[in-house]
Every structure is written in structure tokens, then in C-alpha cells.
Design a protein around this nucleic acid. Structure first.
Lengths: 204, 204
DNA sequence: TCCCGCCCCTGACATTTGTCATACGAGCCG
DNA sequence: CGGCTCGTATGACAAATGTCAGGGGCGGGA
């Protein structure tokens, strides 16, 4: 038998992380060499322990899984990254893939299945949960231009147009135009629903 | 030694649920007698197995932990309920306590700690995570009247006033009045931010 | 080269909001 | 009973927003 796969586990929920570590430890060919509760901690641990596969939660304080993956890609290219997510939005999938993530799975999979996927990823293959992939494909590509997306993003926390304009360095009229076209492209009722659907689809 | 504590575990994330079951099984006085992935399933399992303590995730498809807790309270009053949450909002805490939940903890606790808390709850005591409790206390009581809260809730998905008025069976002018007073009470910029802060504080 | 799409802006308009004053009935407390 | 708050409603006005119709400038592809 070859050397075991060395894992880094990063999740902010202690309960989950510990439980996961325990379950994965049952697999003979897997060994958890490091754990982290935050994005920066995950990076530090990765540098220190150089795992074969990093299993990252998407939502972590400090820096999310995708950010960590991006950093890892340049610092430790030989370390494969597998992202695990609670309630997966397709938008994150796209971002994750762009960041060089090799696997993307929801937490609804079983531990046994996760172990298999870890092996798959370690072998150099990719794995994306079929359901999440379908969602991402059905969401399609963003019809929004860069500016429209930016403005919509700034609008998503309910700020008034003047503030958006200021933050984007645009004239208020321009902002309204972008918002208007974004809303019509998304078939939304108003900018708030537009912002939400754009976020759901991963277009912002 | 007395009989072991019989547990129901409900969480939609298979990974977590399985891992949790495995960890809790390590404790000699705890035994997981049922697992569920959705709210309704949790209820059915509880009816069938009559556990001593139900450990419920706050977020589940079908019916959330609080809804399940409410149902359990009337159907199986002798079953203690412990709610576990990923990223706890104080609002849910208040709702949960009102529903007769005996314990409320974030998933950042360790498995060992969780086991202790399960024992505490089983003994008839209450346990609320200190940090979450502090948040809830600092959030205070809702300054909103029932109608204001209702209207704000309907407004939270970005619907226009006319639609809110229709859905609430009110005149549009009245809706605007309520919205206006709610916004000023919450010190918000507009109804959207007001709706969000109200939701964060658990006032809707 | 010319055209087209995107970016940025302006101005004008209709509609939707937020805000205020005011009103009336119901229920509650002193 | 007399005030009080709450729910409900109007009407009016100001401000914000959504929608159109333009018009430059710039870069990339036919």
C-alpha cells in the first residue's frame, strides 16, 4: 500500500470539524495532519504541514474557501483543494472552479462518499456534485456587463442611489441607468429582487 | 449506572449527522436511536422512537428546528429539545426559547462539550450558549407593533407597497405609514435595511 | 475603415417612496 | 368617564427611483 493521503481540514464549526476528522480517520488511507477554524489559519496550517488535499468549508471567518484556494494554488500548487459547502449556491461553484478547486461537494454527502471523493481528487481528477453542477449550468452565464454587476452589487445592501454613485465613482443618473438595465435583463421587479437573484445565480 | 440517554439527531447535512452520531456514540451514556434529514422526518422519527433528547439543527428543509420543537412540545412533552445552529442569530434564540427548547448551542462547540450539554438538558436543566445569550439580550425587545412587524416582514423581499397592501389586506397609505414608523423606530435608512436589521434581531 | 457594444453622461418624465398632518373607532387603564 | 395607544385610513407634498431618449468616446471585429 502507498503512503496515506495527508489531509488539512478547515471548518469554523468545531463540532463538524472534529466529527469529520474522527470519521475520516476511520479510513485507513487517509490521515488528517492539520485542522483550522478560519481562512488565514487554514493557510498557515497548509504552509506548515503541506497536505496532499485541503478540505475547505466555503464559509469561514477571515477568508472564505475560495480565497484560501486561490492563495493555495500559487503557494502550494501540488496541494489539491476540495471545497465543502453547507447550502451550495451555484455562483460559488463557478468562482471555486476558476480558483483552481478540484472538487466541490455539498455537506449532504455521506462520510464514506466524501472519502472516495478525496481519493478521486488526490488522484488528480476533478469531482463536482452533479446536482450543484446542474444548478450552475442552468443558471448559465451572466448577461450583465461588468459595470451593471458592480452597481447591482453595491445596491444589494439597500443603499440609496446617491451613495452607490459615490462609492462607484459614477454619476447618479448613470447608476440609475445601469440599475434599470440590470433589472430588465434579470426580469426582476426592482433592484432589490434583481440583486438577490443575481447573487443566487453567482453573477455578482 | 442508569439507562443511557436516547437521542434523536436531525440535520439535513448527512456528513454532519453521521459524524455527529459517530462521535456521540463514543460517549457511553448516550445512544442515538434515530436520525432525520428534514423537519417532518424528525417529527415522524420522534413519534416512532420517543427519544429522551432531540438534537435539532435550526436549518432544515420542510420545517425548521423551532417548528419541530413546537410540535414536539405538544406531542411528546417529556422529550427535551436541544437546538444546534450553524451561525446563530439571536432572533432564533428567542423564538426557540418561546417554543420550549431547553438548549441552544452553536456548532462551534466541541463534541465533548455537546455531550455534556445533552446530559444537562436531559437532567431537566436549560443551557444557552453564553455568547448567543448575550447577543439576544443586547438586541432587546422589539419596539415594533404587531402590524409594523407584519408589514416589514412582507416588505423584506423587495415587494412594492401596493403588493404588500394587498397581501396584508390594508390600504397602501396605511402600509406606508407602518413602514415609515418601523423604519424610524429601527433607525434605518429605508425599509430594506430596516427589514434586514429586524430580521437579524429576530423581530419579525 | 466602419459599425457595434460598452461605458459614461445629461435631461425629462412618470411612478414609487417617505413623511407629515389629521381623523375616527376600539380597547385599556386609572 | 377621560385620556392613552393602536389600528386604520386619507390627502398632500417632497424625495427617491424607474424609464426613456438622447449623445459623446473608445476598442474590437467585420
Amino acid at each position: 500500500m502507498s503512503a496515506p493521503v495527508r489531509l488539512l481540514l478547515a471548518d469554523d464549526e468545531h463540532l463538524i470539524r472534529g466529527a469529520l476528522a474522527a470519521l475520516l480517520a476511520l479510513e485507513e488511507d487517509l490521515v488528517v495532519v492539520a485542522e483550522a477554524a478560519t481562512g488565514p489559519e487554514a493557510l498557515a496550517m497548509a504552509r506548515a504541514h503541506r497536505p496532499d488535499v485541503a478540505v475547505l468549508d466555503l464559509q469561514m471567518p477571515g477568508a472564505d474557501g475560495v480565497k484560501v484556494a486561490t492563495a493555495l494554488r500559487s503557494e502550494l500548487p501540488e496541494c489539491r483543494v476540495l471545497v465543502v459547502t453547507s447550502h451550495g449556491q451555484p455562483g460559488h461553484l463557478k468562482r471555486a472552479l476558476a480558483a483552481g478547486v478540484r472538487g466541490f461537494v455539498p455537506k449532504t454527502v455521506s462520510a464514506r462518499r466524501l472519502a472516495e471523493i478525496i481519493r478521486t481528487v488526490h488522484a488528480g481528477n476533478r469531482y463536482v456534485d452533479p446536482e450543484l453542477a446542474a444548478d450552475a449550468i442552468s443558471a448559465g452565464d451572466s448577461p450583465l456587463t461588468a459595470r451593471e454587476a458592480e452597481v447591482l452589487d453595491l445596491a444589494s445592501d439597500g443603499a440609496p442611489v446617491t451613495e452607490i454613485a459615490e462609492r462607484a465613482g459614477l454619476s447618479p443618473g448613470t447608476v440609475r441607468n445601469y440599475l434599470s438595465s440590470a433589472v430588465s435583463k434579470l426580469g426582476a421587479e426592482n433592484r432589490h429582487t434583481a440583486a438577490r437573484t443575481a447573487r443566487e445565480r453567482g453573477w455578482v
